[in-house]
Design a protein around this nucleic acid. Structure first.
Ligand SMILES: [Mg+2]
Length: 294
DNA sequence: CAGCAGGACGATC
DNA sequence: GATCGTCCTGCT
């Protein structure tokens, strides 16, 4: 967690425990963070840019200011949470304990609702590399340019900026059949049928049901949006990796997504989302196969 | 060139 | 309410 920070000209120097840049930004939860050097990542959310460098004794943050750091990035990076306590709490058994120790510096980002919604609609039936390309393409075409450090970044387009777009308009983005899903999401949000800003006030069941009204949002994508865009940590998104690893460790049989989510709820309850993040990261980094145990 | 990876939808039972 | 074929693209 955030222990201390101070302003040094254009830089903010912060002492943060349990924070690893690679683990956090390469764990499949976000698509707009890029590694600049092994110890440095740059990302954008809304119209905020953040440039984070890990040093020996501190993190150096650039591209932001005190107010934006305190009012936006602090929550986005979940810096007030004690992840050492999270690791302990989810470690109910040997395999998850190993996975959580392995992902000791993971943090679950609290991302902006609308951006999370569209990003995870694009994520369905895709891998991270391609998702990043799609989100980048959409932002380049419909977002606004921002200059930082001699380069141009593009904001993720707001609903108003996508209002009226058609599948044909989206063809250059190369998102395939997901184009119609984007169109539907824009219509539902602009029409008020779905309100990203009230998502966080909904219960788990209400939120998932509401999100699934959008075309292209099924159980897995809804869980991702609710977990990463609303901080609903009882969510347990079941993708192929989490399915495999949960089945092989905790069920020892083929199971449906609903059965897997129930098992996760029994094991971790309101912290299931954190457990999912550790298991996913471990499984994917180690290319775990069906039946393999951690 | 073929095969494969990755979730949601819609038809069908 | 569960199962299954199909969708789209990029990589191997
Ligand atoms: Mg839906």
């Amino acid at each position: 967690m955030l222990k201390d920070y101070s302003i040094h000209g254009e830089e903010i120097h912060a002492v943060i425990t349990q924070f690893d840049l690679y683990q956090t930004f390469e764990s499949g939860q976000c698509f707009r963070w890029n590694q600049m050097t092994p110890n440095r990542y740059m990302g954008i959310s809304l119209d905020h840019v953040l440039d984070v460098e890990k040093r020996e004794d501190r993190f150096v943050l650039r591209g932001t200011d005190r107010n934006t750091f305190e009012e936006y990035w602090m929550d986005y990076l979940d810096l007030k949470r004690d992840y050492a306590a999270i690791v302990k709490a989810v470690s109910v058994e040997e395999s998850i304990s190993k996975a959580a120790a392995y992902g000791w510096g993971l943090r679950i980002l609290l991302q902006e609702e609308w951006e999370t919604m569209i990003s995870f609609i694009l994520s369905s039936n895709n891998n991270v590399k391609r998702i990043k390309n799609l989100v980048e393409g959409l932002s380049h075409k419909y977002g606004r340019p921002i200059q930082y450090g001699g380069r141009t970044l593009y904001t993720f387009p707001r609903p108003e900026e996508l209002q009226g777009v058609t599948c044909e308009d989206l063809a250059p983005v190369r998102c395939g059949y997901r184009a119609s899903y984007i169109v539907d999401a824009v219509e539902k949000v602009m029409g008020g049928r779905v309100d990203p800003k009230t998502l966080r006030s909904l219960s788990y069941q209400e939120g998932i049901r509401k999100l699934m009204e959008i075309k292209g949002v099924g159980p897995k994508v809804a869980d991702c949006i609710f977990l990463y865009g609303a901080g609903k940590y009882e969510s347990y998104p079941v993708d192929v990796w989490v399915k495999r690893v949960t089945e092989s460790i905790y069920m020892k049989r083929d199971a449906t997504a609903a059965e897997i989510k129930k098992r996760a709820d029994d094991l971790w309850g309101d912290l299931a989302g954190f457990a999912q993040q550790y298991l996913f990261y471990y499984a994917r980094e180690n290319n775990l196969k069906t039946g393999e145990i951690i």
